[in-house]
């Protein structure tokens, strides 16, 4: 395995935590990401706030890299794929259709998140298999909201977990995976997202995304 990744074993199944802010399940050939917030920059621009474009391109490049290096056959999008209705400008829709085309052989499944409800139907050309609330697969329950489900281990997003390292003097704040006893939360995929600091509960393992590597802290 790539030394930049971390492995966790849950319910006897091996999973990899990628520095691309993605979760990989090798046995199923499935890659999962959460909170992509496509078109967020464009939503701001629509409101008259002049933000530079570029986040989307970088996010897509990172997502492509994760797909390519893992060779995943399926991509699970765990909610908040889009940021708002206004952000889905023709250019954004077109760019994403193009990106989807470049990974045509990958099956894409979207579990709707709260932001996704702003739009009734997503563009056909994105070829997404849309699920309203969750997907159960193997020992796992994939959802947007990190709420425990009996009998299955939950993988979700929504809260954009961040970890604050250091003490009184030197501190760092990084996106992280929060792997708890019954629920695992993925970091927000998009670079243009804030987040909340997680506090470690008993049994939690925290994996920080530190630039090119994932580090358990």
């Amino acid at each position: 395995m790539d030394s930049r990744r971390c492995q966790v074993r849950i319910e006897g199944t091996l999973l990899e935590l990628l520095p691309e802010r993605a979760l990989y399940w090798p046995d199923a050939g499935t890659l999962a990401v959460a909170d992509l917030h496509w078109g967020k920059t464009e939503s701001f621009q629509q409101h008259g706030i002049p933000l530079p474009t570029g986040v989307l391109e970088d996010d897509l490049a990172r997502l492509s890299a994760a797909l390519t290096t893992t060779g995943a056959r399926r991509l699970l999008l765990l909610g908040d794929l889009i940021h708002s209705r206004q952000g889905l400008t023709p250019a954004v829709v077109e760019r994403l259709a193009e990106w989807r085309e470049s990974h045509a052989s990958v099956e894409c499944v979207l579990v709707r998140g709260n932001h996704d409800r702003h739009v009734k139907t997503l563009p056909d050309r994105w070829r997404l298999d849309v699920r309203e609330s969750s997907i159960d697969e193997g020992p796992f329950h994939f959802a947007h909201h990190p709420e425990p489900v009996s009998g299955r281990y939950v993988w979700a997003g929504h809260i954009h977990p961040m970890v604050r390292l250091g003490g009184r003097s030197d501190t760092l704040r990084l996106p992280c995976f929060q792997v708890g006893r019954g629920v695992g939360v993925l970091p927000a995929f998009s670079a243009f997202t804030g987040g909340i600091n997680v506090s470690r509960r008993a049994g939690d393992r925290i994996f920080a995304v530190a630039g090119p590597a994932v580090v358990e802290v």
Binding site: L165, G166, L172, A208, A210, V217
Partner: peptide, 24 residues
């Protein structure tokens, strides 16, 4: 009255390694 501003020439990973011990 120490404020939390810091300046570093260590790499991100070096800092994480050092800080994580303290955090733990």
């Amino acid at each position: 009255e120490r404020i939390s501003a810091s300046l570093s020439s260590e790499s991100l990973l070096e800092r994480v390694e050092r800080l994580k011990e303290r955090w733990t």
